[in-house]
Simulated scan of single mutants.
Amino acid sequence: MINTDTIVIDDPDTLVQVCGPNDRNLKQLEGLLHTRIYTRGNEIHLAPENSEHSSLFESILNDLLFSVKQKKTPNSYMIETLFQYYTGENPLSDGKEFLTHEINIPGGKGRIIPRNLNQARFISLMENHDLSIGVGPAGTGKTFLAIAYALSEILNRRYRKLILTRPVVEAGETLGYLPGDLTQKLDPYLKPLFDAMEEILTTAAFQKIQDMKLYEISPLAYMRGRSLKNCIIVLDEAQNTTQEQMKMFLTRMGEGSRAIVTGDLTQIDLPCKEKSGLIHAAGILKNVDGIGFSSFQRGDVVRHPLVKKILEAYEQEHTN
């Protein structure tokens, strides 16, 4: 039961989940609303002197109740995102749309639930576009979400194969000669993709897709001349493609295929004379029907809390 300034929750377990451990969720909401929230039995109250926040209080608590019904435990990311939704620009049509977006992977370690509005929007774009391009700083979950969505599509047998690719460009240093066969030489460049797959899948599921040859990891340089039919293709670190490479990649899409491109425009490792293919493509393809663009910001960082502060410090140094 929900009233303007009071929420009554009859189920004790639901009440505990909404309030959080030691009322952590309510304390966070107090900080965001700059007002007092208190509990009395099975009731959650907004302080009467702050009734101007009634609508926002009601909307967020209503959505937290909805999340519990969806078997999603309210957390700090969810509360922050709902607050941003109701007080800022809305990239999705309503707050509950954020709460219903998720990636379910057969054999996965759990549901992949977006931690902010832009992650939810990126999932929506991947679901509804044959080509999705996600751009943003490190730590915003671009690669993780792209691979999670692609694995979900493969394990649900909607596509024949998953193709994972990256440009082989060294980040500011020359590694020189690398020993071993082609796979061993490429492993350092493609390891982040394996890391994401291992984080998402159980050992059994990972072994299954290996045994069934449901995925392929390929350097971008080896994509020329291929026509990839009924595949889902992920191009990571796309900021390090040249214009020619990006055009070549995008034209590999065959009948029944879907492609996802991710990149960080603040970490371009190309020689100075080369213009990033991702920047070029974003400029000329922004109005093409069937292509979805998603932009992540520094505020969307979901890695260690220090990552956001580090990015901010580098941005300030760059502008000074």
Rank of each mutant, 00 (worst) to 15 (best):
D63K: 14
L182P: 03
L235N: 01
E173W: 15
K27L: 12
D10S: 10
D94H: 15
I232H: 06
T165Q: 00
V169D: 03
L278R: 02
S295L: 12
G263T: 14
G31M: 08
A204E: 15
G290P: 07
S59Y: 06
D5H: 05
E274S: 02
N230F: 14
T262V: 10
G134D: 02
L61N: 02
R36V: 13
A204V: 13
I79E: 10
L125F: 12
D264H: 13
A282T: 08
G31A: 13
L220W: 12
P179T: 12
G20P: 11
L64M: 14
L33S: 04
K27Y: 13
L82R: 09
S54W: 00
R298A: 10
D289S: 15
L92W: 13
H129I: 03
H45M: 05
Q245P: 05
N287R: 04
N75P: 11
N116S: 05
T143V: 08
I291Y: 10
D13I: 00
Q243N: 14
S67M: 03
P219M: 02
G107S: 05
Y215W: 13
T35G: 09
V68L: 06
F249W: 06
M248V: 03
L26E: 06
I260R: 06
L117C: 07
K72H: 13
S218G: 07
G110K: 00
I154V: 15
R303V: 13
K308T: 13
R157M: 05
P167A: 00
G31W: 07
L186Y: 15
I232K: 02
Y38G: 02
G225C: 01
D23I: 08
L29M: 13
K185A: 06
H34W: 06
E43N: 13
N156I: 10
F66K: 02
V302Y: 08
P219K: 03
Q28K: 15
D187C: 07
R115I: 03
R111W: 00
K69N: 10
I147D: 03
D5G: 03
G141A: 13
I268K: 06
R36F: 03
E198L: 11
S93F: 11
D181R: 01
I233L: 05
L228N: 06
E255K: 10
F206K: 08
L32R: 04
V261G: 07
M246V: 04
K275I: 11
I200P: 00
D211L: 12
L285M: 07
A120I: 10
G20C: 11
Q184K: 15
I163T: 01
N128G: 06
D289N: 15
L193C: 14
K71W: 09
L125A: 12
P91E: 00
N230A: 12
N118D: 05
D5T: 07
G95L: 04
R24A: 15
I217T: 11
A120K: 11
I233E: 01
N156L: 12
A146L: 09
V8Y: 15
G134A: 08
E153D: 09
D94Y: 14
K71V: 01
N62Y: 14
